[in-house]
Design a binder for these strands. Structure first.
Lengths: 191, 191
DNA sequence: ACAGCCATGTAACTCGTTACATGATTAC
DNA sequence: GTAATCATGTAACGAGTTACATGGCTGT
């Protein structure tokens, strides 16, 4: 018995609390897409199977309510947040944040062992990372554009801006490192 | 049977490959401290129990060799990287990096649901985060100072510089957000 | 004498993943 | 007709955590 809700549970619950007035009724599938547009950049976008598992847990906790939709043939379940769910979510938000952000940075990790690679290899790795950053930044930019300046999406927009600034900073740092690596290559040609 | 080595395995193996000439012989405990000074900031510093588990796995894979140290009374095991280990580590570094960095950012996550909090609460959260960032930045700064400009620690120093720049950028962004939240508070006093 | 650090390990458990299985609906 | 997308779930597994257990060594 999993007992209590995790941060990921609350993250998903938060996605169902987007609108105060006209509450969303989402399928697991739709919730996954919403997670891909938001959670992915600052947390984790859980696998589909995990989404369904969490929804079941949230339902057991009374935080969401499901309604089966026996349309024609296919049955879909739509979930909405309950008032109980809103209360727990607010309670959770009221608690002081204990954990510092965790970064799992495979490029930084490898750069730590740069002395085991050739300078060219390090440079190639960093260049590929700059490309990947550009892509990511583009994806987040698209999300940001979708949010517009609608007052309802003020906070999601703020977080998206945060993310974009972060990616910009990251690109700058990486380009600097690239120069540093290339510079030292020139001075000490071979490794 | 766990089969193959993970990124964390290679991260720890990399910590044992610090010096090419005079190879380190570390206990699990010492390895943990080294991880706390480096891996913690860009990857994860595994729990003690995990360190011992990984060392056993690396030993099974022939990547490290252990020597029992029956001093007086207490027996300690010291691990050093083997030539096989160096080869696997190099092989691993030669592979293209497939994964984009993963960020688990509890503050950004909560900010996403800012509309469920009072502006004061959001501001307080961000202020606490700025403090925490300062602490972290200080810790990393101490590590950076220890590395100095020794050519042997060039790459670790580069990564530490990266991290410090990152924390600086993060603090700037957070302060901006803080202003944005306070600004909108003035315009729309209560929530 | 006692706290705090050094040192090693096992056991239970949780989170989340991939792989598997199934099938309806929609667009071309 | 067939590929892509929508939709929902189960099963096996892996990585890593916390809790537990044990004990030596060091400084005050």
């Amino acid at each position: 018995v999993p007992a209590s809700l995790t941060t990921t549970s609350f993250a998903l619950l938060g996605l169902l609390a987007w609108n105060d007035d006209d509450p969303d009724e989402l399928t697991g599938y739709e919730l996954k897409r919403r997670a891909d547009n938001t959670l992915r950049f600052y947390w984790v976008s859980p696998a589909m199977s995990q989404i369904y598992t969490e929804l079941r847990r949230l339902e057991d906790a009374g935080a969401v309510a499901a309604s089966d939709d026996h349309g024609e043939g296919r049955t879909t379940r739509r979930y909405r947040i309950t008032s109980t769910g809103r209360v727990s979510l607010r309670d959770w938000l009221h608690q002081p944040v204990l954990d510092f952000p965790v970064l799992k940075h495979p490029i930084a990790l490898r750069l730590l062992m740069g002395h085991l690679m050739s300078a060219d290899q390090v440079a190639a790795m960093l260049e590929r990372y700059v490309d990947a950053l550009g892509n990511r930044r583009g994806e987040l930019g698209a999300v940001r554009d979708m949010l517009g300046d609608d007052a309802r999406y003020r906070y999601p927009a703020m977080v998206a801006d945060w993310g974009m600034t972060y990616y910009d900073a990251e690109e700058r740092i990486t380009r600097d490192l690239l120069q540093r690596v290339r510079h030292e290559t020139r001075r000490q040609p071979s490794t």
